[in-house]
Amino acid sequence: MSSTEHSEHIDSDTGKMGMWLFLFTELFLFGGLFIVYAVMRSKYAADFHHAALELNAFVGATNTVVLLVSSMTVAMSLTAIQQNRSGKAIGLILITLILAGVFMVNKYFEWGHKIGLHLYPGSDVMKTMPHGEIMFFGLYFMMTGLHAIHVIIGGILLTIVIRKIQSGKISSSHYLLQENAALYWHLVDLIWIFLFPLLYLIT
């Protein structure tokens, strides 16, 4: 049986490495947008300054705290499952899901406010704006939108993890899926850590 145990151990290690390789592609997906942002910012510094004043730093800061706390709860849920406390693990993931919901509701009101002001790509107001401001809002919607899609996918993954803990498929000896879902959730947090200062804080 020792050879079986050995291969299972390798599987877990390679499974995690596969997840990291996927996260690298995610990094370059957002990295491309960060590069566009950096180049456009240096090209249209004044327009970016003016457009960034439209964003509410308080909403951005609230969502930063929400995501940081959710990152901790998901890390703690992994600790709980490793210690064979599945009830605690499920509870912590539920808190993470609630925080993801809070993030999305914030995002909904934030985007709703912008769209109410006709600040969305292709709007009549936007067409009259300087080129740099159009670029800023285009990047804002693209980057926060792509990030929000990742929050939703992360939420779905964590929901699957809860189901698998309940059915006993994830336990203190088999928790690779939960580990990878947690890694994905931390990536969502990592990207926001850069998005928040670049879009909301720097004006």
């Binding site: 990152s71 901790m72 890390a75 931390h186 947090d189 990592l190 850069f194």
Partner: peptide, 8 residues
């Protein structure tokens, strides 16, 4: 980001 990568 380094702290999140290292610990979380």
């Amino acid at each position: 980001v380094t702290i999140v990568l290292t610990y979380f």
